[in-house]
Structure formats: C-alpha cells, structure tokens
Design a protein around this nucleic acid. Structure first.
Length: 261
DNA sequence: AGAAAGCCTCGGCCGC
DNA sequence: TGCGGCCGAGGCTTTC
C-alpha cells in the first residue's frame, strides 16, 4: 500500500533520527528475509550513526556512518518513531497499531526508537540495497525520464498500466497511483504502450505530475479520497459513466468506460 | 469468503 | 531442439 507518497512521508519522519547512533537493532525472520539472517541485521546495524535519509520509489534509504540501510514497506508497513506514525493510518488494513505487529526496529543512544509496524509480513529491511533494478523516481520524474516510459523499442509493448507498475521502468507507481493518473489522462489502461498517441503521451505526463503533486499535498494515496468509483458497480466521479475493472499487470484495475479510451 | 495499494519466483510461450 | 527473454499467474502473509 504504501506507494511512493507514503514512503516519502516515512522518509521525512526518519529525518528526525539523523545524528542518532544505534545501540540495538532487531528484525524478525520475515523482515530479514532478504538478509542472510536476523543476526546479520542486529550485528551490522548496531553502532551505526544515521547521517541522512533517501528514497528511490518505494525503497526508503538510511545513510549511515557505515553501510546504507534500506526499508521496504510491502502492503501494510508503517514507519514509527517512538509512537508517532509516519502517516495517520492506511486506507486498507487496520487503522490500529499493535506492539506484536512490530517486525523490526532500532533503538538509539538518545532513547528513541525507530519501528517497522506491519500486520502482514511483507515489509523488509535491507543492508546496502541495490538501486540497479529501479527506474527513475516517480516523485521527481522529468519529461526526458517520462519519455523513457512511453518509448518502446519493438512491438506494441505491454499495456500502459503494466508499464507504469514496472519498478525498473519508473520507481514508485503502485496500483492506485497508476489507476489515478490514467483516469486523469483519460487513457484506457489496456492500451499498448507503443500505441499511445503524442497527444495521449502529453496528457499522461501532465496527469503524472499533477497526481504526484496533489496527492502528496493531501498526504498520500492511502487516504482513499480519490476514485470513489473504485468498487464493483461503481460510477465515474467525473462523468457518471460505468466503471470497468479487470486484472492488468497483475493488479485489479478500475477505469471509466466513458472517458478513458 | 475473497480480495488486498508489494514483490518475488516459477513456468510456459515465443523467437532466434 | 536449445536457450534466453518476456510475461502472466501464483505465492507469500494476515487482516477485514
């Protein structure tokens, strides 16, 4: 769930612990799944001083006095510092916090704690994460970078929705953001990427940027105050047209049968 | 009961 | 027939 906008709010929260030194770190076997062991996290992280924060798409980065650290939030992950949540809650999943849903964390020399709260166990911690498989960041996407998304070398390419969800093409667009920008641009999510007209490309770029800007201001896509037609039998909030749904790019996709083509 | 906003793996298919 | 790349399906995991 957390898409790029939620992860950005977590990163801003994590700015608060810049300068602090880790006295203890722990992770359960699920959170440490990308590591060789849970002990590796505890051993490597202890003693590091946090020197800065970063983010590439949905991957949050902690710069340190030693190796960089990474955190991924899966579908229900939330970053906490002491008891303060990075965001109010999540549209999906429980809006409550439980201590037994804390899957990883670190304690600092000033008494504070950074915690990874995740009811489902899909969030992960990483040591020296690789950025090689990630495309340009969605929040700061430039027009030349956008052109790389819609340019297809051969054939018609995958459906534009699937293309937007491909993290190696552009990092940070999740299922809701993908639907939202295609809705705003009036583009059928099934359209092969290579078939988009110049006009559609321009509309999608504009929609991409405005979606990022307006939803970041509102606090992220988790608030669920966009796309009210996102339910079986729903109606398009713009023109009242029937909303359609199908699985595209492996995710449930909603679009308006009237204005998205 | 079924679906969920992420990500990873696996297996089938296509083209050289 | 062999192999690599691509893509979709399915799994993970727990909750509501």
């Amino acid at each position: 769930m957390p898409e790029v906008l939620e992860v950005e709010s977590y990163r801003r929260l994590a700015d608060q612990i810049v300068g602090a030194t880790v006295t203890k770190a722990w992770a359960d076997p699920y959170a440490a799944k990308k590591l060789t062991s849970t002990a590796q996290w505890a051993k490597v992280v202890r003693g590091l001083t946090i020197t800065g924060t970063g983010r590439r798409g949905k991957l949050m980065l902690l710069e340190t006095s030693g190796v960089p650290l990474g955190m991924r939030f899966g579908m229900t992950g939330v970053l906490l510092i002491d008891a303060a949540a990075g965001i109010e809650g999540l549209f999906y999943g429980p809006h409550t916090f439980r201590s037994d849903w804390i899957r990883a964390g670190m304690a600092f020399d000033d008494g504070r704690q950074l915690l990874l709260h995740d009811p489902r166990r899909l969030a992960r911690v990483e040591i020296d994460p690789s950025l090689d498989e990630l495309g340009p960041d969605a929040l700061s996407l430039t027009r030349p970078e956008f052109n790389g998304i819609v340019s297809i070398n051969r054939g018609e390419g995958p459906a534009i929705k699937a293309r937007l969800l491909d993290q190696s093409v552009v990092a940070g667009v999740g299922n809701l953001l993908g639907d939202e920008m295609l809705f705003r641009a009036g583009i059928d999510p099934r359209t092969p990427t290579g078939r988009l007209t110049g006009e559609q490309q321009a509309a999608l770029y504009t929609a991409f940027k405005t979606t990022m800007k307006t939803l970041l201001r509102r606090g992220g896509s988790h608030l669920g105050d966009h796309m009210p037609g996102r339910a079986p039998g729903g109606l398009c909030p713009r023109d009242g047209g029937a909303m359609r749904s199908a699985t595209i790019g492996g995710r449930t996709t909603y679009w308006c049968s009237l204005h998205q083509h």
